[in-house]
């Protein structure tokens, strides 16, 4: 086995880091959209809104039951053949869309569990003072559910950052795509993929630190 080419690795790192913002942006956009969608799906499930509840169950079942890569190919390569407007959709948008739908299916379930875990008597208390369902959700349930759900949601965010690497299969030059290109130019595959692995690792570890800090803060909330 040959020694590692450290100089190449040191030179490659700054080149790859230029693609990190795109990776993080896709993950952040996906996460924001997924949070909104997942909250809606969770509320539909909790309130058992007729028709929508059934549709939500189907949605969750499909997006949890199929691989993310298959979903991305379906949106990017498959759908444009059926729906003409979708030919406009570029790889980045398709990735964000795919991440949103895929992860919202998982996140909806953890948000729902957090909501259902809140003592039912608080719901009755809120209704008894004349709050509407929407006020009850906004003022009482969601703030408490957030606190319970945040640690799990952070895990999904970390997972989502790693999953953005699949975007390179849709021709997006993000962190993984850029590494692939660099590596096929230099033929130093091991070095190149080691560098990108370390970059992902550092990003995820940083987020894990943030997650632990957040958890501590949230556990302190509501007791004073």
């Amino acid at each position: 086995m040959n020694g590692l080419d450290y100089d190449y690795m040191m030179g490659l790192a700054p080149i790859l880091l230029k693609y990190l913002p795109l990776t993080l942006e896709m993950a952040a956009a996906g996460m924001l959209c997924a949070l909104v969608l997942a909250s809606l799906l969770a509320i539909i499930r909790v309130l058992r809104i007729p028709v929508l509840n059934g549709a939500t169950l189907l949605f969750i079942s499909f997006f949890r039951g199929t691989p993310l890569l298959v979903q991305l190919f379906l949106f990017y390569y498959g759908l444009p053949q059926v729906l003409a407007i979708l030919t406009q959709v570029n790889g980045i948008t398709a990735t964000i869309l795919g991440l949103t739908l895929h992860f919202s299916a998982y996140m909806a379930e953890s948000i729902r569990a957090a909501i259902v875990g809140i003592d039912r008597s608080q719901t009755e208390a809120a209704l008894s003072i004349g709050m509407t369902n929407a006020q009850l959700m906004r003022r009482i349930i969601l703030p408490q559910a957030t606190r319970v759900a945040v640690p799990t949601l952070m895990n999904y965010f970390i997972d989502m950052i790693k999953s953005t690497s699949l975007a390179f299969t849709l021709g997006v030059t993000e962190l993984m795509g850029a590494t692939q290109k660099e590596a096929s130019g230099s033929f130093l595959y091991f070095e190149a993929f080691l560098v990108v692995a370390i970059i992902y690792w550092v990003v995820v570890e940083t987020l894990s630190l943030l997650q632990r800090w957040l958890e501590k803060r949230l556990n302190k909330a509501f007791v004073r």
Binding site: S121, Q122, A125, S128, I129, G130, I140, Q144, A221
Partner: peptide, 20 residues
């Protein structure tokens, strides 16, 4: 229902305060 509820108030056995 809202109108009637807003003219009554309820005190629960287990207090049911808003924890947040």
């Amino acid at each position: 229902i809202l109108t009637l509820r807003r003219q009554t108030a309820f005190v629960f056995q287990n207090y049911a305060l808003f924890a947040n």
